[in-house]
Design a protein around this nucleic acid. Structure first.
Lengths: 201, 201
DNA sequence: ACATTTAGTGGCAGAGAGTGCCAACAATCG
DNA sequence: CGATTGTTGGCACTCTCTGCCACTAAATGT
């Protein structure tokens, strides 16, 4: 089976799992239930996901990847805040509303479900490497230099806070304003720490 | 049983667990083994620790608490970097060498043991609140203001990178220089992001 | 067209994680 | 001393997750 097919399958199961998690909690949802909802055997389910909580991974990864794509397209001459304002909206528009809802609901879930929070934090830490790949060249340093890793970590952390904030704000349905608020939240949070960065250059 | 006694018991079990984790890996260490090593029944062990990975919590918490104590004693007139240089060394000296070793070995372990990494990240996120309590007054803002949370998150993230770095560096035994390097690593990392902070004031 | 390899799937059994329940035991208090 | 309260350990049980194998289907060779 192709890698791409496998990813699609995982994403599909992920959507079912998240819906069940939101409805009954993580502890109240068994692997068997998720498998049944997704239409695969329990054995196959456990092959796709090593732990129950990692069911949220595909959906969240999709969000993180989208952001990383925008980030990679950041032209050198532009301020990051301006680039985000310009390039981030179309990305959000292009993904399906259901998935945006699902992602935000997962982020909200993580505040009451420690296991999901842990999975979320692990995922974000993996995303730091991608961030370092972008920031490294900007600082004329290798991506694994300590200064780069520090900047990437700081930026990732403020993005997490901004994301938590907007997820909380969008508890009652997602509006266009909420998402624009998200973009601005991120932009301003980033600019807050990037003062250190611009001085460093 | 007093709360303090319970904490001591947890810490004791924690030390045994960490030793076993380092020797055989997390997956290779059963709850029964830890319980036996610590001299309690398996049932009691599971009462003290809801998950196997949370065994690392007491030791790590001790480290985080020590840092938070130093942070709370940060006088308003001093730069943070100077305060750390001045007040952090005695704290490290006062804790037992075994525990310092154990903590560093846990941090190193987290790089190969995802479950421990997740526990570690969760712990650090809890510590962000303590950080916000210190930073809030400095910015003349409530501790739950978004700007404060952003700063706390950024600072916590850079401290994590610095800690990972020193843990890696101290793989072959801990020297006095390693620890001083740690303090300087932290100080410089913090000052790197705090430029944003000082401009904000 | 047919045999063979290859890869994914599901079922089953089992180890280990973690919980509920109860009996035993110790400490505390009247 | 008896009653109460809180901690412990043992037992049985559920659920998570894995190893193993048989089954199916697609791809490949001849």
């Amino acid at each position: 089976m192709s890698d791409e097919q496998r990813q699609r399958q995982r994403l599909d199961i992920s959507r079912h799992a998240v819906r069940l998690f939101a409805a009954q909690g993580v502890a109240g949802t068994s692997g068997e239930q998720i498998a049944q909802a997704a239409g695969v055997s329990e054995r196959t389910f456990w092959r796709y996901f090593p732990h129950k909580e990692s069911c949220v991974e595909p959906l969240l990864t999709k969000m993180v990847d989208a952001f990383c794509t925008v980030l990679h397209a950041w032209p050198p001459e532009l301020e990051l805040i301006d680039h985000l304002r310009e390039a981030y909206t179309p990305v959000l528009d292009s993904s399906s509303d259901e998935d945006v809802d699902a992602v935000l609901s997962v982020v909200r879930l993580t505040h009451h479900e420690p296991a999901l929070r842990a999975a979320y934090l692990m995922l974000r830490e993996r995303a730091e490497d991608a961030l370092a790949d972008v920031l490294g060249p900007r600082l004329d340093l290798p991506a694994d230099a300590i200064e780069v890793r520090v900047q990437a970590a700081a930026m990732s952390a403020v993005l997490r806070v901004a994301t938590d904030d907007v997820a909380q704000a969008s508890a009652e349905g997602v509006t266009k304003e909420t998402l624009e608020g998200h973009r601005e939240q991120m932009a301003s949070a980033v600019s807050q720490v990037l003062r250190g960065l611009s001085q460093k250059r």
